[in-house]
């Protein structure tokens, strides 16, 4: 199996007032293709910062990240955007759907960005049906419940058949029952499409369902569990 994500000696510092605040210190790990991986830790431990860096949403001051074989540190913002569009999927805690687009339009955005024409809509409908929203194509996010919005977000995340999917507290805003359904869907799609899954979560039960997990404390790697 080849490495889909490789993180090496990663450091991240923020300027806070007059002093520097180190958020990540010497973090290194690797993820294989199709693997499921959890990043856990208490609030403020640097989980979300690490996810942002791994997905190319932010840049680090030191260390290297290889995503899908490409070194993110040497890429421009637009090049990283292109890489995300082709190989990466996202699921956020607060869904992050575009409020002005319908469910179907939200799902097809990554495909449309690739220049896929009419076929994008067919694929979007197929995915929405798969997540149980076959009757919600033309609903706006504000017309959907939290669970439905997260299912739309899931459909969108898998629409471009990503090599890796980053999920930031994917069930954090949902009740237990809905959260369980979303988890199930997430793992089903991961298996079906062979997508590597990186989940940032507080939920240890969810973390235990992954192949491996990384525990962070105050920006440092505390434990790598298998």
């Amino acid at each position: 199996m080849s490495k889909i994500l490789k993180v090496e000696n990663l450091n991240k510092t923020y300027r806070s007032g007059n002093h520097d605040l180190t958020v990540l210190k010497e973090v290194s790990f690797e993820i294989e293709e199709g693997e499921t991986f959890a990043i856990v830790g208490p609030s403020g431990s640097g989980k979300t910062t690490l996810l942002g860096l791994c997905a190319g949403l932010d840049v680090s001051q030191a260390g290297n990240i290889w995503l899908c074989g490409q070194n993110l540190t040497s890429m421009s913002e637009d090049e990283r955007a292109l890489l995300r569009n082709r190989h990466v999927g996202f699921v956020f805690q607060d869904f992050q759907l575009l409020p002005t687009l319908t469910a179907l339009e939200n799902v097809v955005v990554p495909l449309e960005l690739q220049g896929v024409g009419r076929a994008a809509m067919d694929r979007g409908k197929e995915l929405l049906e798969k997540v149980g929203l076959g009757d919600r194509f033309h609903h706006y996010p504000s017309q959907l419940s939290g669970g439905e919005q997260q299912r739309v977000a899931l459909a969108r995340a898998f629409s471009n058949k990503p090599s890796i999917l980053f999920a930031d507290e994917p069930t954090g805003n949902l009740d237990g029952e809905t959260g369980a359904k979303i988890e199930q869907l997430l793992f089903e799609l991961n298996k079906e499409l062979g997508t590597a899954l990186v989940i940032v979560t507080h939920d240890l039960e969810l973390a235990q369902k992954t192949n491996r997990s990384l525990r962070l404390r105050s920006g440092s790697m505390e434990q790598m569990a298998v």
Partner: peptide, 9 residues
């Protein structure tokens, strides 16, 4: 969000 999904500047 659009940039996150791969839209350029």
């Amino acid at each position: 969000i659009l940039k996150c999904l791969g839209a350029t500047k």
